[in-house]
């Protein structure tokens, strides 16, 4: 996994609440058995005017120019600013895969759906929860050229006007993301404890191991 340390980038304001994972990456693209290549289909139904299909070449598709991601001033932005309950609905990890493949590294919102929040950390994507008032203030400040600097080590966001916002992230997730660590490898370091648990549990509840 790609580590996340410090990022300075433009910010795309996606001013919608309850953005669900069906909107982030529609179901037809979930037929892929690969983990990469979802970026061109990110927000497919909002980004294009036609119906997207898997493996479609997106270069000549009709663009919805009103959609924020299609405005040239936000091209190559790596920070997404969103409203509450971002990533609700389906557990599809294709949603963070698509965001990451498109180029996003961080998402700022007042709240995230739990499964999506968790999935982000597995993919080098940092979801940041801020107070609704702070998010609102960022929405008012954003525009072409507006940049934020996110520093995971110090858990801070710095605005171009010098303001610093602090965010929370739990220590284990922070450590893994800062160093791009492989979760499975870390868990397997505790293989003996897992086996000990299984042995104990097989006595207490043998039907679970029948």
């Amino acid at each position: 996994m790609k580590p996340f340390t410090r990022l300075t980038s433009r910010v795309v304001p996606l001013d919608r609440a309850n953005v669900d994972t069906d909107a982030i990456i529609p179901k037809q693209f979930l037929k892929s058995i690969r983990r990469a290549g979802f970026g061109p289909y990110l927000f497919d139904e909002w980004r294009y005017l036609d119906r997207g299909e898997p493996d479609m070449d997106c270069t000549n598709r009709p663009i919805n120019s009103a959609f924020i991601l299609n405005q040239p001033c936000y091209f190559r932005a790596q920070i997404l600013l969103a409203r509450e309950n971002f990533g609700c609905g389906s557990s599809r990890e294709h949603a963070p895969w698509a965001l990451e493949d498109y180029g996003f590294r961080a998402i700022i919102a007042p709240s995230f759906a739990d499964i999506f929040y968790n999935n982000c950390f597995k993919n080098g994507l940092l979801p940041i929860v801020l107070d609704a008032a702070d998010v609102n203030a960022l929405f008012l400040q954003t525009g072409p050229g507006f940049q934020l600097t996110i520093d995971l080590a110090t858990q801070t966001i710095t605005t171009p006007y010098g303001a610093t916002l602090h965010f929370e992230v739990d220590a284990t997730r922070k450590h893994r993301l800062l160093h791009g660590l492989d979760d499975i490898g870390l868990t397997l370091q505790h293989a003996d404890e897992i086996r000990a648990y299984e042995a104990r549990r097989a006595v207490e509840a043998p039907w679970l191991f029948a």
């Binding site: 983990r35 557990s91 599809r92 990890e93 963070p96 499964i115 968790n118 999935n119 597995k122 993919n123 979760d183 499975i184 868990t187 397997l188 293989a191 897992i194």
Partner: peptide, 12 residues
């Protein structure tokens, strides 16, 4: 769970 976690459970 997401797919990374599916793999995590398969492996651990």
């Amino acid at each position: 769970i997401g797919t990374s976690e599916v793999e995590h459970v398969l492996a651990t």
